[in-house]
Design a protein around this nucleic acid. Sequence first.
DNA 1: CAGTATCCCTTATGATACTG
DNA 2: CAGTATCATAAGGGATACTG
Lengths: 245, 245
Amino acid sequence: MGASYYQFCPVAKTMELLDERWTLLVVRELVGGDRHFNDLRRGLPRMSPTLLSKRLQHLVAAGIAERHKSGVEVRYRLTPAGQELAPIVAALGEWGIRWIGHLGDQDLDPKILLWDMHRRVDHDALPSGRTVIQFEFPAVAASLRNWWLVLTPTEADVCDADPGFDVAVHVTADLRSMVEVWLGDLDWSDALRSGAVTIQGPPDLRRDVPAWFKLISFAAVPRLERPARPVGLPAAPLTPEELSA
Amino acid sequence: MGASYYQFCPVAKTMELLDERWTLLVVRELVGGDRHFNDLRRGLPRMSPTLLSKRLQHLVAAGIAERHKSGVEVRYRLTPAGQELAPIVAALGEWGIRWIGHLGDQDLDPKILLWDMHRRVDHDALPSGRTVIQFEFPAVAASLRNWWLVLTPTEADVCDADPGFDVAVHVTADLRSMVEVWLGDLDWSDALRSGAVTIQGPPDLRRDVPAWFKLISFAAVPRLERPARPVGLPAAPLTPEELSA
DNA sequence: CAGTATCCCTTATGATACTG
DNA sequence: CAGTATCATAAGGGATACTG
């Protein structure tokens, strides 16, 4: 429901629907399947529920998403028109991973990282039964430091409090490095070798941890050998380390 | 320079740069070559010069565009990073032409139509020498009713006042129909047959007019046989004819 | 030609608390 | 679980006039 551009140009008409803040991130969350309101919230933790609700209403009104209610449960899913936005979302992500030069510390949200990871668990690679991984980011504020992934061959849950099960492996990581692994900018093997990520637990399990996750879908996008110039640096408010760089 | 989403997701980082109003339309204008500030304004007539200036500065700061000054002349062009946005802009246009159901009367801007057309003249198809086409949109407010395209084998100019040259052909058109032709939603031949568009002038020239223009680049995108549902209708403020539909 | 300078004002949105 | 209600602030952006 963005304001009109008063142009017949199809690009303009499309952007009227999509250029409001958060809109394409909601679409990103919906790509690939049904989602509950609160699932969307977990992927968009900095978005207020009011605003998420508003964006969903706009997407539904625009014919991009549908709201399905069965009993008390509500699910949102993309319409065929919305599904055709998937390649656009993918292209935006691929562009970003090629050209965005630097992530600020503020971009490194463990909540989102864990939520992302839980969605891309390779369940076939897991041991049978329940596998619990504890993630610890020592440098992070206490409330965001410890996370547990409870994995089974069919399910994956994220907890920010100890669920009480036996922990199979304990991953201790520098948050930035863990994100870089996740984005495909750093190999698991390099991260482990340098000590930026360490895994404690039975050797056979420790060895398998990297195989339990499919990295973010953009991880395989070819990077530029030498980016002409990293993009987006001056766009973010400058942090102290950026100012000194 | 959009506000941060506080996410490492490449889609989010890209949208931080691109999701502000007008930004992708400026990129659209820059796709395909150098542009002067005032050329950009003609393609974006509803954008204030202040805002255009601001967006250009953001695009330059983000490494997406470059500003080249030679003497008094300033040209903007996309960097390699910016050029890689071209497929995204194209995909947005293709999505729009497939799924946007209806254009409001307010979207039918003759200024933009003529500016678009002048950029896609097929100069090789023109007669030698100067060819002047007058366009008249009888139903449009007087100040936007008459337009002249002054075409040569190497140049194309748009005038909103009679340039004084002999007019080779005079095109009288219903504005909406002319836009539909331009978008590939209506054939020239059908428009001429129905009388929505009429061409006066020497028969051989009249016959050739459609060949002088390459339609908008999205014109060839396959449309859906029966769109499940047109998209974007409720997004626009309802016009009287929409309310009665 | 290529922008700036103002000015006002709507609107978007972040934060927080609360409900069927 | 799936949202609404409320509020205050900032800022985005439209319009217009003016300048090197």
